[in-house]
Each structure stands twice: as C-alpha cells, then as structure tokens.
Amino acid sequence: MSCLHTINRSPDSKLLESCLKVINADDAILFIEDGVYHCFSLSNLPSIIETVKLYGLREDMLARATLSKTMDRVEVIDTARFVELSCEHDKVVSWF
C-alpha cells in the first residue's frame, strides 16, 4: 500500500518536514508548484531514506528557472506522468 505525497509550497512552509514524519518507506514524494524549490539544493532537501522516490514537476520547474539546478536524486516528470504515478500508487496525499 504505497502512497504518492504531493508538496506544493517552498521549504519555508515546513510541509516536507510534516510529510516526512508520517511517510512510509515505499512511498514517493512529488514536488509541484513552489514545492519544486526543494529540488535544487541539498540544504532544501534533507536526507530522505533511499527507498522514497522523489519527483519534481517539469512544468513548474520550467516556469521558475529551476530545471537546470535540479539534483540527480529528483526525477523530473510531466503532468502525464503525474497522472500515471497517481494510478501506480494506492492513494495520493496532498500537502498544501
């Protein structure tokens, strides 16, 4: 029973910290909207156990000029893949 968590605010929101408190090892996190600011600096992206897959939404990165800064740990995806991920996981939990 894995879960896709979406996070749509910048690191200042502490949404990621909240999410990490209750995440399961086989879950995934997708950064969307201002959440993509997590993706380009180690200080914004605390160590998360390796089994948790990390994704970032390409459209939001393009808009914010952060695509080229994105760390390797984060897989860049488009909205079509966002829909697919929603199907591949048992549920979607949105943090906003």
Binding site: D60, T79, A80, F82, V83
Partner: peptide, 19 residues
C-alpha cells in the same frame, strides 16, 4: 495561487489518457 491551474491541467491530462 497556482493550485486551481494545476488541478485543471491534471484533470485535462487524465481525461486525455482515457481515465
């Protein structure tokens, strides 16, 4: 905020995919 626009894109995309 951007959320309503994101939701709209998500809705359009899932329909395109046949869901």
């Amino acid at each position: 905020t951007e959320s309503a626009a994101t939701a709209l894109r998500f809705a359009e995309t899932l329909i395109q995919q046949g869901h």
